[in-house]
Design a binder for these strands. Sequence first.
DNA 1: CGCTAACGTTAGTGAGAGCTAACGTTAGCG
DNA 2: CGCTAACGTTAGCTCTCACTAACGTTAGCG
Lengths: 120, 120
Amino acid sequence: MFEDESETDDAFRALAEPRRRAILRLVATDELAAGEIAAAFDVTRTAISQHLTVLREAGLVSERRAGTRRFYRARPEGLAGLREFLDAMWSDALDVGRRLVEAEAAGRPDETAGRRTDVA
Amino acid sequence: MFEDESETDDAFRALAEPRRRAILRLVATDELAAGEIAAAFDVTRTAISQHLTVLREAGLVSERRAGTRRFYRARPEGLAGLREFLDAMWSDALDVGRRLVEAEAAGRPDETAGRRTDVA
DNA sequence: CGCTAACGTTAGTGAGAGCTAACGTTAGCG
DNA sequence: CGCTAACGTTAGCTCTCACTAACGTTAGCG
């Protein structure tokens, strides 16, 4: 698993920016033009344009051209990698939590914390 | 929703770093000491220590001290904010996809699309 | 054509983040 | 005590990234 690390990495880095997440929420429910998106913030259109480029290259938004305007919309498939990562992490961590409780109830063995190498 | 933006922001920024995600996967299944974690990478222990600090402040790992050693483990609750964000984004985007298909079948209204939502 | 509107793109700047080396801290051993 | 081991912390460097200003591109109108 996690074979598309480079692709998922782009999505993570793209979402690390609060403004990009705001843009994504903005186009999650409605398809908006670049100018409309830029009007919603108090930064330059240039900055928004670059953010849109990052989001597009990360596969998080799709672009549709109509005349001189370009409409953007959230692309749910771009979040698939993140969901996989989070779900795997979530279930693994919860599983360990359960295991630790059972171990403690059994009289707490496993103090040396013997490794398991199936890390990645 | 998205009221814990500052807390979620820390988690997003923490996960934006590939090495921190690797560390998180490493301690997702096993509780490891700082030295063991550092041994798994080819960077300095200092760098790993700083990464662990970031992960801990983001609520993504827990710390347990035993003698001079400090054991770290993944904290699934720290991912709750991210899951909420992703789930909301996912369902919203899919909902829009469905709505667009229906609108197209109905004869495509809503061309102007002028609006602004709660941008934050 | 000329002109304007709506974008994207490039160069340059300042703030932030990851990395290393050196130093400080705490726990265990003789 | 003195010494070592296992960490964390600070100072400094470098590189990335978000932002702005200026320029280039494409589409529509007269």
